[in-house]
Write a protein that binds this DNA or RNA. Structure first.
Length: 568
RNA sequence: UGGGGUGUGGCCAAGCGGUAAGGCAACGGCCUUUGGAGCCGUCAUCCCAGGUUCGAAUCCUGGCGCCCCAGCCA
């Protein structure tokens, strides 16, 4: 589905192409994906990871996975593992280049000292509150720290004492000496190192000072030889600082720097009916609105995986969405299209009746069973055929019968007929109701002349329904998932998630009849329940005595649309 | 005149001075033993106002809208 022309039209591809042609970075392309191990990856991260990975591949370059673990307070090993698992599942390949930014703490410390020696950095004793005050505001310039003009020797000594653990958290920081009057707040002497007496998931207690992102990231890019450092738009303001760090690294650490890395920003992914901020996703989990980070309704990679979405569908979706700098809110239906498009060609068809209505075929020979043939995937002969038992008692969907049908209802109603897929046409004669008037059973007759593939009736039968033979039915449980949010842009609708949560995001159906061949499915299979949707046999669930299917996405429902129009 | 970014159809998104790609959605039709899939068709003058030019979505000027930035988070 990846169209060359489409890929090449994105502005980053074109920029890199230009760079390569100009021989920049010696013609090399080296990208990276730098997640912070403080949460689970979601569909938005997949965009960034795939973009970086694909660009490297397209230019025959390299791709690194690098964990941005400069903040020991937030980061945990658990997240490292889940992120690696998710990226592998997505098909992203970093070969042997798995790095942690903490791998280079020693080199970074040395670089910081060079900066001090070059008069480019100083130790500042201001408290966090004071630093904020001195920084000024968006419209007023900042004022220089009283510690800004300390001597190199004093700075060096203090910085080393910081590193030795002589000061408590927050007592001092190392700051870059740039410009307290800049309109760009990031250049008002940004903090480079802070004191944090915290256990780091990789380095333990080896360090009590940790570099800040703005210092660490550009330097690490340069160390790893990253040529094109892609990040999201909110870092645009940081680019001058990124360049400052890289330039200084080139100047002061020429022996270890492998590239004059450059940052390019692109817009992050937003999708309708979804919330993608780490904070809100966390709240969904913590407030119990979902069963966990991998709840099939979550936009996390692990959630999508459990839902049954394939990596191919995600990649196809990213290709279709493209990459640009403008803010956007992608319609969920675009994602649903990629999911259906992917499954349409590969999912075996099964018949499962989600809301059963019993049909007794009154003229069917007592006790007789006929095994009918059905295509596994229409128009794909290589997928082969299967058989399903047909008998005198079958289930059909309740919604495939209406006592008093509206126009265009090409299904079953009293006095009318419908074809049972792959079997016979049945004609409805009697409607059996309970005391409250609910339809509980239909009495129909079948027409032997309408046998599928061999219809000699001469009649044109409009409607086709799926069905399951009652005595042969295998009972399965089904989870029907819908969007977590009813709002198209829940991200902007305030804080109380309950106001926008979809109360019907999960509907569980228990022990619904399915055709017997469904038992042969292996966990992790994706199938189409004919006329209903694509479903995933959840391998994570304990099946116990029965199968549990997650609905990945429903099929398009043209009848629902017609019905809606009729009611308007 | 704090700094940065961005504005092309309902939603994404090409376009790079030569007369608006493509996808999703929608709508109409064909086809169909999944009202699925498939096929055919319909659907924009490019935030606004000036200007430059034979010619502007593309260049210039001036507006307007929206997003981001005042963590010792990333």
């Amino acid at each position: 589905m990846t169209n060359e022309a489409e890929m090449q039209s994105n502005f980053i591809y074109q920029m890199i192409l230009k760079d390569v042609e100009a021989g920049k970075h010696g013609g090399r392309v080296h990208t990276r994906f730098p997640p912070e191990p403080n949460g689970y990856l979601h569909i938005g991260h997949a965009k960034a990871a795939l973009l970086n990975y694909n660009l490297a591949r397209q230019f025959d370059g390299k791709f690194n996975l690098r964990f941005d673990d400069t903040n020991p307070i937030a980061e945990e090993e658990e997240y490292v593992e889940s992120i690696i698992e998710d990226l592998r599942w997505l098909g992203v390949d970093w070969e042997d280049r798995l790095f942690f930014t903490s791998d280079y703490f020693e080199t970074k410390f040395a670089f910081a000292k060079r900066l001090i020696e070059a008069g480019q950095a100083y130790v500042c004793d201001l408290s966090p509150d004071e630093i904020r005050e001195y920084r000024g505001t968006l419209t007023e310039p900042g004022t220089p720290s009283p510690f800004r003009d300390r001597s190199v020797d004093e700075n060096l000594a203090l910085f080393e004492r910081m590193q030795k653990g002589e000061f408590p958290d927050g007592a001092r920081v190392l700051r870059a000496k740039i410009d307290m009057t800049s309109g760009n707040l990031n250049l008002r002497d940004p903090v480079l190192y802070r004191i944090l007496h915290a256990e780091h998931h990789r380095t333990g207690d080896a360090w009590c000072i940790y570099p800040m992102y703005d210092f660490d990231h550009p330097f690490t890019d340069a160390l790893e030889g990253i040529t094109h450092s892609l990040c999201s738009i909110e870092y645009s303001d940081h680019r001058p600082l990124y360049d400052w760090v890289v330039e200084n690294a080139v100047k002061l650490m020429p022996d270890v720097v492998k590239a004059r890395s450059e940052q390019t920003e692109f817009a992050r992914l937003n999708m309708s009916h979804m919330v993608l901020s780490k904070r809100k996703l966390r709240r969904l989990v913590e407030e119990g609105h979902v069963s966990g980070w991998d709840d099939p309704r979550m936009p996390t990679i692990s959630g999508l995986r459990r839902r049954g979405v394939t990596p191919d569908a995600i990649a196809d979706f990213q290709d279709r969405v493209g990459v640009a700098r403008a803010d956007s809110l992608v319609d969920l239906r675009m994602f649903l299209f990629s999911i259906r498009n992917d499954l349409e060609a590969t999912a075996l068809r099964k018949m499962v009746v989600l809301e059963p209505l019993k049909v007794v075929i009154t003229n069917w020979p007592e006790g007789e069973v006929e095994w009918v043939e059905l295509e596994n995937i229409p128009r794909d002969e290589s997928a082969g055929m299967r058989t399903a038992p047909f008998s005198g008692e079958v289930y059909i969907e309740r919604e495939d019968f209406m006592e008093d049908p509206p126009k265009k209802f090409h299904r079953l109603s009293p006095g009318d007929e419908i074809r049972l897929k792959g079997a016979y046409a049945i004609h409805c004669h009697d409607v059996i109701k309970d005391d409250e008037g609910n339809v509980v059973e239909l009495h129909c007759t079948y027409d032997p002349k309408t046998r599928s593939g061999n219809d000699t009736s001469g009649r044109k039968i409009r409607g086709v329904a799926h069905w399951v033979s009652a005595p042969h039915a295998v009972e399965v449980d089904v989870r029907l998932y819908d969007t977590l949010f009813v709002e198209q842009d829940p991200e902007t609708v305030g804080e109380d998630l309950r106001d926008v949560l979809n109360p019907e995001s999960l509907m569980t159906l228990t022990r619904v009849p399915a055709e017997p061949s469904i038992s042969a499915l292996t966990p992790g299979s994706r199938v189409q329940f004919m006329r209903k949707g694509y479903f995933f046999l959840d391998p994570e669930e304990d099946h116990g005595d029965g199968l549990i299917f997650n609905r990945i996405v429903p099929l398009k429902d043209t009848w629902a649309k017609i019905k809606k129009k009729q009611s308007q």
